[in-house]
Design a protein around this nucleic acid. Sequence first.
DNA 1: TACCTCTATGTAATCGATTACACATTACTG
DNA 2: CAGTAATGTGTAATCGATTACATAGAGGTA
Lengths: 346, 346
Amino acid sequence: MALQRKPKVIDVARLSGVSTATVSRVLNDPEVVSEATRKAVLAAVKQTGYRVNRAARSLRTNTSRTILALVPNLSNPFFSNILSGLERELNAADYSLLVTDSGEVELTADHIQRYVSAGQADGLIILDGAVELQQLELVQSATPTVPIVFACEWVEGFSGASVRADNKGGIRMLVDHLWDQGHRKFGHVSGPVTNVLSHHRQRAFEHHVVSLGGELRPEWVLPGDFSIAAGKEVAAQVIGMKEAPTAWICASDQIAFGLIAGLKKAGVRVPTDVSVTGFDNIEMTEVFDPPLTTIHQHRNKMGNEAARRLLMQLRDNGAEINTPTVMPVYLVDRQSTGPVSKKTEV
Amino acid sequence: MALQRKPKVIDVARLSGVSTATVSRVLNDPEVVSEATRKAVLAAVKQTGYRVNRAARSLRTNTSRTILALVPNLSNPFFSNILSGLERELNAADYSLLVTDSGEVELTADHIQRYVSAGQADGLIILDGAVELQQLELVQSATPTVPIVFACEWVEGFSGASVRADNKGGIRMLVDHLWDQGHRKFGHVSGPVTNVLSHHRQRAFEHHVVSLGGELRPEWVLPGDFSIAAGKEVAAQVIGMKEAPTAWICASDQIAFGLIAGLKKAGVRVPTDVSVTGFDNIEMTEVFDPPLTTIHQHRNKMGNEAARRLLMQLRDNGAEINTPTVMPVYLVDRQSTGPVSKKTEV
DNA sequence: TACCTCTATGTAATCGATTACACATTACTG
DNA sequence: CAGTAATGTGTAATCGATTACATAGAGGTA
């Protein structure tokens, strides 16, 4: 009863008494076909269980309906959240998501082209800001029709689209919040020195603290790498400080966790002795002790938005809007921050 | 200087003075070509910057060199860790990884076939145990050459390959550990009732507690859903219990976090009053207060292994070995467990 | 030398869908 | 009603790589 071979257009065509061209039209451009034929063809499609062969279609149309996501570290939950948003949006538009971990390899134009030139991907979503601008431009000039959208991270100077959180706004909210609680001496544990987010937030931090009239010292700015381990290392340094900030702004929740854990172990109380904030609002912030005051970003939505911008570019055929989309963030006030205490003042 | 068009086999062929057949052979089956020709062709490939068109190759060979991963929830860090392992292994074998979130949709054979029948994927890695056996068998009979490997979760009764953690062993280690500390009354917060892992661990838990002679009561077994929220809900129930276990084994670290947070809020001390264990050993366990005693599983390696088994099947063309690969786990003893206290005994 | 084997390579068909172009039919216009 | 436009459909070329089959030449054997 069921067909032995996989059904092809020709089978559908025969069954419905039309040509392969018409079948194809029904599938790709239904309006041009008459009502009656369309119905007949769709019925035949259903009956045969026909499904287009993507390879054949790709070959002919020179498109893959597939998007490649370059993720710096697939095991990082932060990125997987964005991926999730991406995937949902792409799937809804009948695009597939190809994923590659860009963490180990150096992200050269050549590496990226392996996918693009081979016709495996119609567009690129890059979550990794650690691509060199020059390499990106090489990719763009080699395959100018392939849109590139950055999500979360980005590359300074790159002319393409990007979707990012309101990093600056987030930092300001945190500083304001702490300022209102009486803090005047601020420390910052930033992300990796080469990371765009680090730079951006670092700059926002400095500007805002200065503009409020708070104290800023170079030795109170410590680079981390977004990890718990980094937070712990910083804790060790903080404990040794003669004069320390009363509030620490960390570039990620993980750093804050590590820092607080380290401080607690040394007998420093948070927030009684020192206030600490995170960034991201990952799930765990809520059950951490103390629950973490942090900035929430809509990671899923950032993925959605990035996908939408990419799809738009694919449709409008490169109507590039290079203004970054900035997603709003908000402050989540929990218990890792509090009024500055007398004792801490040396 | 650079070519306008993308180079094709014919361009490489012309440049190196051979036929397209020979170029193809150099690329796919180098041994059959003479040393001299091979070198000439490779030089031409390099010079032209040629890259095979995957669509054309796919069409002709009826393979995609792409694997589809079905992930129940892309934003769950647990799965993204497995993904990461998968991706690395597949990439090393020149396979690409297509990812889809199976969480929202019902995983029907039809849904899966959308990818497979369309020739988009040569194999399937399923991280989602919530597929119906019948649907799986439909997929297998429709496309018997497409290997399926389960990773982490699996479907009872399914004849294909699977890679999983030693869930039973992990549970036993936990029970033994608690038993040694004097606990005799055990509670279990399991995963979702329909989840294979839940069942498996639940059974292991019951068997082992009983075989040691510990106490087991139906009201001490509470279903959760692996989430922090579930842990919190359970905490509320536990607090109301007339007689409660002295040790709780949770199906995930997240549940344990939620449970402990809830207990702490109600003034119950962990581990002084009650011991709690997790499962997974996610990064955060270390900085949690108290640091969580849990079972570590090699999530990355599970991904690696699943990919390896799939690739093996693709090479040996379906030499199916249906014994599951069980990955070892180990106990990480931290501070959420301790000797049973007198006070807790009612 | 005649014949066979083996190796290296070329010729051309093939995978399955899309689409340029051609054509037939119908509808509309003055 | 002739002429033109609009609509719907079919024919066949096409995308780019792989590979069955054919063949040329080298080497071996009786």
